[in-house]
């Protein structure tokens, strides 16, 4: 059985929750309400230091997207042959988050597309542990005609 780990526990929250996929962890400023991702100990808008943990929404829409066509330099890690991947920004309401997409083709990544949080195998550690990162996938809802 393959063991797995998250790419970095500190960017997730609700690890033992009801959801199959842990939520992304942000901080909410108690002074001005700004939400950051990942967690931050101070607020870049007002300079406040009263920040509380918050779980980010799991659903949103694509704010912008591109496809990464060439393999990034280290510290990027990947298994086997490089496959182009989609990435961009997802509007979650309180915050717009940079993320990988499960889709690697621009015709599936139009701005405004509804997407939901998932986990994606990113690379494998030397000991065989599979490392999972967060990604957003288009939600497959039927369009009402």
């Amino acid at each position: 059985m393959t063991t797995t780990r998250l790419i970095d526990d500190s960017i997730f929250t609700d690890l033992e929750g009801a959801h199959e996929v842990p939520a992304l962890a942000g901080s909410a400023c108690e002074g001005c309400g700004t939400t950051t991702f990942p967690r931050q100990s101070s607020c870049p808008r007002c300079g406040g230091v009263a920040m509380s943990d918050t779980a980010l929404a799991r659903e949103g829409t694509i704010w912008s997207a591109t496809v990464q066509h060439f393999p990034p330099k280290p510290p990027f890690r990947f298994d086997g042959d490089f496959q182009p991947f989609g990435m961009g920004y997802v509007d979650l309401g309180a915050v717009i988050v940079e993320s990988r997409f499960t889709e690697g083709s621009m015709d599936r990544l139009a701005i405004g597309t509804p997407v939901e949080l998932t986990l994606l195998p990113a690379f494998t550690d030397e000991d065989g542990t599979q490392v999972l990162t967060f990604a957003f996938a288009p939600t497959h809802r039927e369009e009402s005609a």
């Binding site: 990034p72 510290p75 490392v131």
Partner: peptide
């Protein structure tokens, strides 16, 4: 964090 680079965002 190093996750940001490992993720291919740098």
């Amino acid at each position: 964090g190093s996750w940001y680079g490992e993720n291919g965002f740098m």
